[in-house]
Amino acid sequence: MLPASFDYHRATSVADALGMLGSLGDEAKILAGGHSLIPALKLRLSKPAHLIDLNAIPELRSITRQNGHIVVGAMATHTAVQTSDIVRSAVPFIADLAGSIGDASVRNRGTIGGVIAHADPRADYPAALLAADATVVLTSKSGSRNVKADDFFVDMFTTALAEGELVTEIHFPALAKGTGASYQKFSHPASRYAIVGCAARVTVEGGVCKNVRVAFTGLTEKAFRDNGVESALEGKPANEATIQAAALLAAKSIEVTGDSFADEAYRRHIATVQARKALLAAVAAATK
């Protein structure tokens, strides 16, 4: 199937892209890796009059370390994140997550900015951004603003991204010594999207869990932080028993949507399993 016809524009800088976005308005769509957008175009679920391609903007692909943060450009591909030494050394669980996305061709083209702008409820990054306490940088003609991951994911396919804005960077705080994090994914065998993904970040101080952040993807209309699990573990000894008890609270206050592959009861159960695995791995990394 072929998309409806559109005009193609290749931006060569962020300013260039923002200019196009300004003049073309809501008739235009941003093209990043195309792995969510192109299928929608081909099925004619989306029929933009213009596509603005960000692939020729090198600055959006950079991955750097700045002031204790890992700054990942929106156009960094999943493969780039997976194989980045900078990412691996400071937030290794993000590199692992990137390596678990889809298949090789998805990873070679799909981008972190595309994933979070799209906000698919089954996507992996959103849960990890929440657990990592990441910040999303949104840029428009009038400048940039920083939005905490907690405030970025609004609803299914809906984010804090305003008209005329681009996602330009994602900032991950580097994991300090004594802090560990992990993302544990239970994949759909066909798409390899998450049925349930759980990201956890824990600081262990004197054998006690602190600053616990636990987030899920795949369970409901958007990725969310699970306060029930977090507070059950906060201030508790970092051992299997407390982790197991906290994990069993996963998604307790959430309405879980099931489907023919994994119904609600199963998803709820897997959430507790993935939460336990993620917390155990995070604590292990924190105490290594």
């Binding site: 759909h188 065998p189 066909a190 798409s191 999207y193 023919s260 592959f261």
Partner: peptide, 28 residues
């Protein structure tokens, strides 16, 4: 283990794309 084409009560195919219809792959 993987494949199955199921219809809902209204006769819609529930696994009509490769995002839902699971083919066995080499790593399975």
């Amino acid at each position: 283990l993987y494949e199955g084409a199921f219809y809902d009560e209204s006769g819609q195919l529930l696994q009509g794309t490769y995002m839902d219809y699971t083919m066995p792959r080499a790593d399975n």
